[in-house]
Design a protein around this nucleic acid. Structure first.
Length: 466
RNA sequence: GGUGCCAUCGCCAAGUGGUAAGGCCGCAGCCUGCAAAGCUGCUAUCCCCAGUUCAAAUCUGGGUGGCACCUCCA
């Protein structure tokens, strides 16, 4: 396995802290709103990563947090006159359901901020005790960035006070503008958590460091975990601050490797909460099969920026269709997991920093070769066994082709329409049998008006949603 | 202003020193009653300029053009 480390800015061979194991932590969603395509992309990328690690024989422990303490959640709760938990439960459930639709497997551990306060307190206390954090007269606790000589080593930034913008709510008592809150005292009585530092709320960066220590960290290694991942925007300040907290509170660095996925833009426009043009996953799922979205969002390299648009999505769907048509040809032929040259090549491609383009090219070539042989060869029992093994492997490692191929091609068609289609097809077949081609072509036109394409095969007439 | 990334066929997109993968679209053919699907064939010298090298899309320098982060954000 080779992965690109976004801190060292180079592709590195993966050397696990413990032989045969890989620990991965990814920053998950703040559950105050529906998941957008960026959340989907990030979840997809790290889902693929864990699958590839497992295919390489690693025992993976994958943790992705749920941020359920946050000012935006509280704001929404107040606006909607609901309690915090009903908001966070609702969006957590929605997130899980949507992730499942795009084939993202659940992480092994999914810690919540509300269930990790003890670990956060421990971390803050360690930081205060070691002189890396200080309290203000308001009761806030800040991390003292100047006390960490390695601060900014992650993002390679240079501190430039004259250009640095102040955050609106920063305290007058901060020693340094870059210092960030570990604990914020809350006096308005809205939503607070009791702590040894008074009632208030934890700073955002804190939870990841705390959760990693609590759930994942090796105690006796130079790094807490193997890999830390997240969206490209998190490198600074979020990950920089996490790294600083862990470095100063414990005797190890946070992660050996850092991976950041690129952004999703919509039709060339940056998607952002402040611009209000978020593209929600749930909206895309109404129009497209979840697996098509999975395929499309994964179809270019994870570090590139991704320009989401329906034109490319349609092209991507056609590519996935080819895989499903091969599945149709082999439908119902049982299982087989023998080793094949294709499987080896596919894993090699993906093990090189998730080279999805090379992997997809291999799949396309495999499909073309399979179709060609199935078209021409008389006996192909051994070939079919091999192809079934290949397809099963694509399902396992990439999560493509997991559905019933007939159902896949019927996405979005209701039962009444299906019934109507089957009647029309029967009528057309009778016309064909009577060599009344004028009528059969007219019926095909009528069928086409349902957005459905017919395919006559030796095994009967099938239809696909266009 | 600071830091960093990118620029490959009409579109999407691999390839980071050895002579341009793959998909979509298009054209031609095979197959088909006709189609669809499938298969076969055809389609780029890699933004510009200079340099290094036997050899560069790949390295260096300089341009030009995009973009990201520095502020909640995946």
């Amino acid at each position: 396995m080779h992965i690109f480390d976004s801190v060292q800015k180079t592709k590195r061979k993966f050397e696990p802290l413990v032989i045969g194991k890989a620990t991965l932590y990814v920053c998950g969603p703040t559950v105050y709103d529906d998941a957008h395509l960026g959340h989907a992309k990030s979840a997809l990328v790290f889902d693929l990563l864990t699958r590839v690690f497992r295919a390489n024989g690693y025992e993976v422990t994958y943790a992705r947090n749920i941020t359920d303490i946050d000012d935006k959640i509280i704001k929404k709760a107040i606006e909607q006159k609901k309690d915090i938990k009903s908001i966070t439960d609702f969006y957590t459930e929605a997130f899980h359901a949507e992730m499942e639709q795009i084939g993202v497997q659940r992480p092994d551990i999914e810690p919540k901020a509300t269930e990790s306060l003890d670990a956060m307190f421990t971390l803050i206390q360690k930081l205060i005790a070691s002189g890396h954090a200080y309290k203000t007269s308001d009761g806030d606790v800040y991390f003292d960035t100047q006390s960490d000589h390695e601060y900014l080593s992650l993002s390679h930034r240079v501190q430039d006070e004259s250009q640095r913008q102040e955050r609106v709510e920063s305290s007058e008592e901060k020693k340094n503008p870059a210092d960030f809150a570990l604990w914020k005292n809350v006096k308005d009585g809205s939503v607070t958590f009791d702590s040894p530092f008074g009632a208030g709320r934890p700073g955002w960066h804190l939870e990841c460091s705390a959760m990693i220590e609590k759930h994942l960290a090796y105690k006796d290694k130079p790094y807490a975990i193997d890999i830390h991942g997240g969206g490209a925007d998190l490198l600074f300040p979020h990950h920089e601050n996490e790294a600083a907290q862990t470095r100063c509170a414990t005797k190890h660095e946070l992660a050996n490797y850092w991976m950041h996925n690129g952004f999703v833009n919509i039709d060339g426009e940056k998607m952002s909460k402040s611009l209000g043009n978020s593209f929600f996953l749930k909206d895309a799922l109404r129009e497209y099969d979840g697996e098509v979205l999975r395929f499309y969002l994964l179809s270019s390299h994870y570090r590139s920026n991704f320009n989401f648009n329906t034109h490319d999505l349609e092209a991507s769907k056609k590519r996935l269709d080819r895989l499903y048509r091969l599945k149709k040809r082999l439908f119902g032929l049982g299982a087989n997991n023998e080793e094949t040259p294709f499987k080896k090549e596919l894993l090699t491609a993906l093990s090189d920093d998730l080279n999805i383009s090379a992997a997809l090219a291999l799949i396309d070539e495999m499909i073309a070769h399979a179709n060609e042989t199935l078209d021409t060869a008389g006996k192909h029992k051994a070939l079919k066994k091999e192809l079934i093994a290949n397809l099963a492997y694509i399902e396992e490692v990439l999560g493509f082709g997991v559905k019933n191929p007939y159902e896949y091609f019927q996405f979005g068609v209701d039962e009444a329409t299906k019934q109507k289609l089957s009647e029309l097809i029967e009528a057309r077949n009778e016309a064909k049998k009577a060599k009344d081609f004028e009528r059969s072509d007219a019926l095909r036109e009528e069928i086409l008006s349902f957005g459905v394409q017919l395919m006559d095969t030796p095994h009967g007439t099938f239809w696909e949603k266009v």
